[in-house]
Design a protein around this nucleic acid. Structure first.
Lengths: 210, 210, 210, 210
DNA sequence: AATGAATGAGGCTTCATTCAT
DNA sequence: TATGAATGAAGCCTCATTCAT
């Protein structure tokens, strides 16, 4: 009764909390339920996190870290643009299958009602990939591989928009159903087809040549 | 103040409720707060709506109706694909400026934790535009205007994905900040530039010729 | 819209209110429901009765008047004690069948939480029959017909206790079921048998001779 | 004040709740009021009882258990019928003095508006004493001690009717005042006289000889 | 340092009562 | 004068947070 929480227990808190937040939303999540499912007491959660909000932020952090990892793994796999995009999408598909809760979590973040905080979260979360994508596009443009009329910032945004919707489509019920409605259940269920089509659309969109 | 709620007051309930739901989410929204901000008593809300859920649905309905109207107006303006897309985007930009809460509302809907309900809402909300977009693309493909290798369902999905993210970018703090990060504040603030870029990306994406 | 409530409507208010109070209890009764079932507006009830309590009292008054009538009819039918008792019981059985709500109402009265009021209601309601019963017993005792060791007040009380429980047994679910449990459904359903047995027990109890 | 409710506190909840229910009825009772008068928070009541209904049932249970105990104590004291009755009445008088709320509670139960529940409560509460009383009377009849023309079920019912009214007379304002009206304040206040008279009336009623 | 029972503010909802028409 | 929509206090219940052990 006087031992520190093991690392496993600490991890369990984050994991179970993430699932709870992802499933029920911030307001809907219950700390007592989280504590019970993580196998610890409610009280101890407050030793590690000041309040519900801070626990939520910790979960967000974990999710973001996971996404970053996925993306950075994927980013390095291919050297040319098509390969890189294909890989990003593929890794995303896998990650969504394995940890839909992280992606649902992401969706939650974007709804936080405190706008100042939303802004700062956006900065933390989006800046790295924005920078990376823009760099890639800039290089590609300099190499004459993509549409010169396309602003690299905007291009990166559109690309990431599509990626983000891909996350949602693979992790949130609503978006998943929406994908079915648009593409048909069969088609939507084929990760490969989806990947192919999306790569095609994006490369087209960027005006990729060669 | 004891005779039937004026239409203004009834509208105020929906409007304030929509804002509250949009900002705080379903769970986070408070009926007492809504009543106060709409300038009516709590009790009267229950004369018009059976419970919180029904009020929420009414708000959703109103939002959806508004979006439909915006889209159908836009859809008819241009006759060729580029014009149509430009118009859709333009109307969306205007609509987002005037009623960001409707779009934030939309964002909330997509997170409802009851997955069965999420599915049915998706059906109601997405089917019409899915059908419309797919029809347009099909026609365009038959006219040989767009990439034959692109599935029309997938194409329509990617297109709507971009539209949806546009909604969010113009109505939710997080996505708005994200747009700034990607494109720079200056660029992002110019609706025209954004529209141009997005049209370009989409037409490229669809492989539009002519 | 400017007419006084007809007598029928006024009566309907009392009647429907009595049923509502009898069925749902004082707290459980709803004025809006009463108004609707009586075919009048809520507002007008407040023109006739200051508040819920006063309406309740009016219903009580009506019920009491009904019971008094039943009892006084019965009291005059037989001239000797056995006949009188048999008649009282018989009339009660009939009355309970026709207007269980009046008797349930009675049950409600006895629970009013304001003890001062309970006391004054008891005075109003019980004094007449107490007086009548005691007079009858006194006469019977003077005639040497009943147990001299029995106080006439106590005797009258026990007699009325049994009568009161008879009311309840024929009008309230709980007491009705209780009667079934004690006597068996068949027996309890026979008003005649019940009457016979009860007359016998009471006459025995009073030590009636001749 | 933040560690487990002491037994005293737990008992206080039931006690205060019983008083509240007894006084105001199920609907009229207020959990916040109960919590305050028991010196605990509202929340904690819900740790011990699922909801208002369950708390009510617990109070009912406690009351019934108390009555059972009183009755079974009394039942064993005397071996012959008169002694047994005298004892039952005497114990009841004592119990009513000490815990009028239990008996008032009983009164409330009998009015529950859900008739199915009323029926099942009647079964639970009444069956044991019905059985016991009927057994006693049957034995007495076989011993030729009581009126052969009296059905044992009906006899037991009348007996228990009188007992029940005794409960009410000693615990509810209305019935207490009624007793005063019938017997006079002086007489009614003498438990011994009341007991004597009641025993006499009952034995007479049963036609008890020997 | 961890526990988990207790706290109590606050949320949804009902309904007796009021009052503009 | 009757109407019935509007009012808002109050009821039941939940859950983030606290703190005695």
């Amino acid at each position: 009764m006087l031992k520190k929480l093991t690392e496993d227990q600490q991890a369990a808190i984050i994991e179970k909390a993430t699932c709870e937040f992802a499933e029920k939303g911030y307001k809907g999540a219950g700390l007592n339920r989280i504590a019970k499912s993580a196998g610890v007491s409610v009280g101890v959660i407050y030793k590690y996190y000041k309040d519900k909000e801070e626990l939520f932020q910790a979960c967000v952090g974990k999710s973001i870290a996971y996404l970053d990892e996925v993306l950075s793994n994927a980013g390095q796999e291919g050297s040319d643009l098509p390969e890189m995009i294909r890989s990003l999408i593929g890794q995303t598909q896998i990650a969504c299958r394995e940890h839909p809760e992280y992606f649902r979590m992401y969706h939650q973040i974007t709804m936080e009602d405190d706008s100042e905080q939303a802004r700062s979260m956006a900065a933390i979360i989006e800046e790295p990939s924005a920078k990376a994508y823009k760099a890639v596009l800039k290089k590609a443009r300099e190499a004459g591989e993509i549409d010169e009329g396309l602003d690299t910032g905007a291009g990166a945004l559109f690309f990431d928009n599509l990626m983000m919707m891909l996350h949602y489509s693979y992790s949130c019920t609503y978006y998943s159903e929406r994908m079915n409605i648009y593409c048909g259940k069969r088609f939507a269920a084929s990760e490969k087809k989806m990947n192919d089509q999306m790569v095609r659309f994006i490369l087209n969109g960027l005006g990729y040549q060669e």
